[in-house]
Design a binder for these strands. Structure first.
Lengths: 166, 166
DNA sequence: TATTTCCTTCAATAAAAAATGAAGGAAATG
DNA sequence: CATTTCCTTCATTTTTTATTGAAGGAAATA
């Protein structure tokens, strides 16, 4: 609800509010906290690099939340620090190329899960081997199904990346 | 060990535990509660249709959680009720074709977000039009970037579906 | 070397989300 | 038509997750 933010932080422009809202929604989709969406949204529409105090003040969140949020965003390469002559504070800009973010997300979140699923399926196959042969066939069929989908997930990943980068 | 008593003490097999764990992890990725992963995982490896009491007992969750979980899973077409002659209780089986689930997820979660993002971008463009022309160009550039990514998201959706279904 | 500034970390608190369990509705059963 | 069974809903409780704010470390500055 944009009006809620508008009431709390009158110094944010309508444009900033729309962008922040958009990214809050997007970050929630990928399971990241609201504050991360706020920070990325603000940086996305702000031309000049911002330091953590400016982010903290504009969004009215704590310094700790800003620090944590920037850490997460840097880990996804969604944000980077730029050098500002004559100012020792870190200043941050958003990487406008969202494919960087998407790639990092796929590698950090989806890929490890698919790997561990593959390991788990392997363990399942061993368990099935030890089952009475009557039940074996049905169990095997289902696990093969699962294996098929995990394989498919692994195959589609680089494909999505290629599509996004192009 | 008399078989009547064996039924009273429900315990999950190693295979079931692996499957349930796998789906808990997967459901968390897509932002669904643990219980939904538990239920789907159990149904995925169980050949015979299960009623909600059986699910509740085996997973040791409440009847309410089972009901809610099945509701969610049905809404995604991940699970369906099957008729069991001589038993008025609903019995459920998992749809083994995970592409059904993926399609429902894309349509229910991703698509609406992309639509609302598109609306929001439209509002942003109107706001930019009202800006002093000095700032206009830079703001416009960034919003165009955003628009580009939303468009790309919209384009990739049916493509992912096609890949999953094939 | 002392002081200030900037940033991070983390224990405590607040907020959000999920699970429980009791209540109640609807349909089947006696 | 009363009772039982099955299922759902929802207020409450529990659990999980995010945010705060104070403490402390590191580097720059005086």
């Amino acid at each position: 609800m944009p009006s809620e933010i508008a009431e709390i932080e009158p110094s944010l422009s309508g444009l900033e509010i729309e962008a922040i809202d958009l990214f809050i929604s997007f970050m929630k989709l990928v399971g990241l906290p609201k504050s991360v969406g706020e920070i990325y949204g603000l940086l996305f529409v702000t031309e000049t690099p911002l330091n953590s105090d400016q982010i903290t003040d504009q969004l009215r969140i704590s310094a700790g939340a800003t620090s944590q949020g920037l850490k997460i965003l840097r880990s996804f390469r969604a944000v980077r620090a730029v050098y500002m002559p004559g100012d020792r504070r870190d200043h941050f800009v958003a990487d406008l190329d969202l494919s960087t973010f998407a790639t990092a997300f796929l590698n950090d979140e989806l890929k490890p899960r698919l790997e561990s699923a593959a390991e788990r399926i392997h363990r399942m196959e061993i368990l099935i081997d030890a089952m009475p042969s009557q039940k074996k066939a049905a169990a095997f069929k289902r696990v093969e199904r699962l294996k098929h989908w995990v394989d498919r997930g692994r195959k589609i990943m680089p494909w999505i990346q290629k599509f996004l980068v192009s």
